[in-house]
């Protein structure tokens, strides 16, 4: 199984994981980390520890989900992924990505899953028509 760690500004990560578990139930292989109150070394160390815990838990890989592709969370995750085999960093995390992660984390490789989730995340961003049948 692949483990996921959501790493974001403020309480976004904890709330996203809580919403996923409210929809699918607990035990979805997701954990949450916030950058709140942490400098770069502390946040990077926390992400490395989360990766090590996942690997020790027999995970086949770790996907690190971040909110902003250029923020402190992304930097910390990229630095942690550089020393963790089978870790991938995905930016722009949204609920659709995490729900799909939970569905496919048993059956795909971390590389296949990462590519799938990026596509799923992009598909979930759209301008929705206000009225049914209205394409504009």
């Amino acid at each position: 199984m692949i483990h996921g760690v959501v790493v974001t500004h403020g309480r976004v990560a904890a709330e996203l994981v809580a919403v996923v578990e409210s929809i699918l139930g607990p035990g979805q292989g997701l954990s949450a980390l916030s950058n709140q109150g942490k400098g770069a070394p502390e946040l990077t160390a926390a992400v490395k520890a989360a990766c090590a815990e996942a690997v020790a838990d027999d995970a086949r890989g770790v996907l690190l989900f971040v909110d902003d592709m250029a923020g402190s969370c992304a930097v910390a995750c990229r630095l942690a992924a550089g020393v963790t085999a089978q870790a991938r960093v995905l930016s722009g995390v949204n609920l659709a990505m995490l729900l799909d992660f939970c569905t496919w984390r048993d059956s795909l490789s971390s590389e296949e899953l990462a590519r799938r989730l990026v596509e799923k995340g992009r598909q979930a961003i759209a301008i929705l028509p206000a009225n049914p049948g209205d394409d504009d």
Partner: peptide, 11 residues
């Protein structure tokens, strides 16, 4: 800033 390059700086 002990986060160095991050959103408060780049944005």
């Amino acid at each position: 800033d002990d986060r160095l390059i991050h959103g408060q700086v780049t944005v």
